[in-house]
């Protein structure tokens, strides 16, 4: 079974996680730029983070046979902090990089005017850079946030079919699907979706344009949720091809809209088997 986790924050995870993910079948991940749990106070913190997503993290992933790409953006939460908004001016130079496969995570957190500005600006940047966009839907006031998000995308230069709306659930999936967007579901231990509800949604709405992710990060989360959903699908009677469509071909198809997806992992021969994240003599 091959698995693609289209949304996972590996910066916050350990090498044990990479090892377990590989053993579970994960061969590719996309890491969206997001906030770190602790607010940043200057643009430079973002640049170091972006550079890590374009350097160190793909290197770590490659040690475990996993292809790593990223999405780059100013996240909606920190778009509200004037100390952070200068990041918007520097984003275009990151969006040309080879490993950047979308603009994201963008979207709404508290639906403020500052978030409106950042969302519109970054949708335009995605169109300019010929990238799709990963758009987070808010945790609070979710359905209203979804409608507002779709309205803003409609007014932007980016077509709806180049947008992945993420963190969907039973209350938001229909409108997102009717809008023609790609449909992302985050499966969590306690919040967001769980495996059985995910299977029920696949039964009701079909597998087309559906992506399932763990969104694992620094909080309570599980980087093996993609495998657990795949197992739940098989148990519920979906066949191997349907699992492969949802867990591999759909994320590949979405991120291939960038023209930059490269799924062969290179440079693992000397340092595979997990013994290579050495300390370099420190």
């Amino acid at each position: 079974m091959r698995l693609f986790d289209p949304h996972i924050h590996m910066t916050s995870r350990t090498t044990d996680d990479y090892e377990a993910m590989y053993a579970a079948g994960v061969r590719a991940v996309v890491e969206p730029a997001f906030w770190l749990g602790q607010p940043r106070t200057s643009p430079s913190s973002f640049y170091d983070y972006f550079d890590s997503l374009l350097g160190w993290e793909p290197f770590r992933a490659a040690q475990y046979g996993i292809a790593h790409h990223c999405t780059i953006a100013l996240n909606p939460k920190e778009a509200n902090d004037p100390r952070c908004t200068p990041v918007l001016d520097q984003l275009p130079r990151y969006l040309v990089k080879d490993n950047v496969v979308a603009v994201g995570e963008i979207g709404y957190d508290s639906m403020t005017p500052a978030e409106d500005t950042a969302l519109s600006a970054q949708l335009q940047m995605a169109a300019d850079a010929e990238l799709p966009a990963l758009v987070h839907t808010p945790h609070r006031d979710k359905l209203a946030g979804l409608h507002r998000t779709i309205d803003v995308v409609r007014e932007s230069a980016l077509p709806l079919d180049r947008v992945l709306l993420d963190h969907l659930n039973e209350t938001t999936v229909k409108d997102a699907k009717d809008a023609g967007c790609w449909l992302g579901f985050s499966v969590y231990p306690d919040t967001k979706m769980d495996e059985d509800r995910m299977v029920a949604i696949l039964r009701s709405y079909g597998p087309e344009k559906v992506l399932v992710n763990s969104a694992a990060d620094w909080g309570r989360s599980d980087p093996l949720k993609t495998r657990k959903v795949a197992d739940a699908m098989l148990k519920a009677g979906f066949d191997d091809d349907m699992v492969d469509l949802v867990m591999w071909r759909n994320p590949v198809a979405f991120y291939e809209l960038s023209g930059r997806l490269h799924l062969e992992v290179e440079g693992t021969d000397a340092t595979h088997e997990g013994n290579s994240i050495l300390r370099g003599g420190e």
Binding site: R93, V96, D98, E266
Partner: peptide, 20 residues
């Protein structure tokens, strides 16, 4: 950025990572 620097960034997806 000068155009050639954009080409510098794009080399992986244009020539393949093994030739970048």
């Amino acid at each position: 950025a000068p155009t050639w620097e954009l080409r510098f960034a794009q080399a992986g997806r244009r020539c393949g990572p093994e030739h970048a």
